[in-house]
Design a protein around this nucleic acid. Sequence first.
DNA 1: GTGTTATTTTAGAAGTATCTAATTTTTTTG
DNA 2: CAAAAAAATTAGATACTTCTAAAATAACAC
Lengths: 236, 236
Amino acid sequence: MSPHIRTLTAGSSLQREGLNHQAIEDYLKTIYSLAETESPVSTSRVAAARQVKPASATSMIQRLASLNLVNYEKHYGVTLTEAGRAIALEVIRHHRLLELYLTQALGFGWDEVHEQADVLEHVISEKLEERIAAVLNYPEFDPHGDPIPAKDGAIVSVTTRPLIALAADQPAHVARIPDDANPEMLRYLAGLGLTPGARVVVSDVAPFDGPITLNVNGRPQVVGHKVATQVLVEVE
Amino acid sequence: MSPHIRTLTAGSSLQREGLNHQAIEDYLKTIYSLAETESPVSTSRVAAARQVKPASATSMIQRLASLNLVNYEKHYGVTLTEAGRAIALEVIRHHRLLELYLTQALGFGWDEVHEQADVLEHVISEKLEERIAAVLNYPEFDPHGDPIPAKDGAIVSVTTRPLIALAADQPAHVARIPDDANPEMLRYLAGLGLTPGARVVVSDVAPFDGPITLNVNGRPQVVGHKVATQVLVEVE
DNA sequence: GTGTTATTTTAGAAGTATCTAATTTTTTTG
DNA sequence: CAAAAAAATTAGATACTTCTAAAATAACAC
């Protein structure tokens, strides 16, 4: 019920260091996200997520290590240093604030904000970040249910599980949907009412990756296995 | 495969061609602006405006020429091709829409939007451009009085002269102030009421680059020579 | 019109981020 | 545990944008 909050010392940002390379920020963000699933993060996971060849990931990881943004052990994996985490969280804060701003202030759909936020996140100034946060009244979550890190790096931690793993008759609500999901899937989910906050109760999970029968905000629905692995729910 | 041999038809954007290099857009924008004063544009003017060495400008101009974005004659100068002008106008449209949006929607001062718009202009999608234009009700001028090109590249042409060149007792109004002017000067000008639309009548221009005595919106003011060369007015 | 000066271009290098191909290290499997 | 497979790294190349230094060209001055 009470979200766990981790506070980080506001590390120096790349901007403050005079470095502002999109690639560096993208790698740090990627490593941060991948570490949520498994840490340390392997070169191949980074390469797959960034859509580059493993050799490119190795090269960039070595560069990040030389900048003291990651701890790197050959053939083993990477973890973020405090400095690296601070930058990752700043970029993620930008990304999520932008996603929310684009939906709230500019009429974008939740299925079309990811790509635009992915480029804007690297170029907004501290002042613009602050103004956007102010207009949105310092929000805590983006349109996909992802928590927005505070300026000091504090980020709400919500314990979730995939809808597919929810026990039958266990009341829960939708917490997050990956913002980089297929836009078509996001529109499909919205059509079913499966957006953050929706109350769900699973009634049946068919075997062999079969369909999930559930109730969404009081309405009966059936979704496929793949969809049910993407939707993250929080038990009540 | 040589990725630098591409044909750009007029009206096509770099994005549509899969090219999205900030540097190219910046050079085209610079050449467009410099050509308003004098065309063809010399290498040294481009270098000075972009704050790079002349050798760098030559190199980039040759690249632009190979992309058919400029017409280039060695030791003579560059002009934009239709394709180059189309891209320049698109980027300028982005820049000016963004400057206005930042002031109108996000509370920025007219002295602090240039830098932020300079980076955002390269990364906003067609859709975001359209949404911003819509929110602003398809404006024709930015906060500095610069005309905003339409989507098809049409741009209002206003005949202006520097305030310094205005005849005494000739009624005029402020048309434009360079958006890349020193922020301090912009704040100073705003303090004097010298913003786009202000009605001005010069009563005296002192010799030897001396002060200009004038009336701004009914109030007597005195400004220096340097300031009076920056403010562009339109005779009524 | 010739010599001097200023401008422009060329040549060659560096730094970033990516790639392919080859090699090395780790993991898996029989 | 040894062979095979998978993963990761190194080596060397390319593209982009900039630089410095040197060479070529144009403009100017007398």
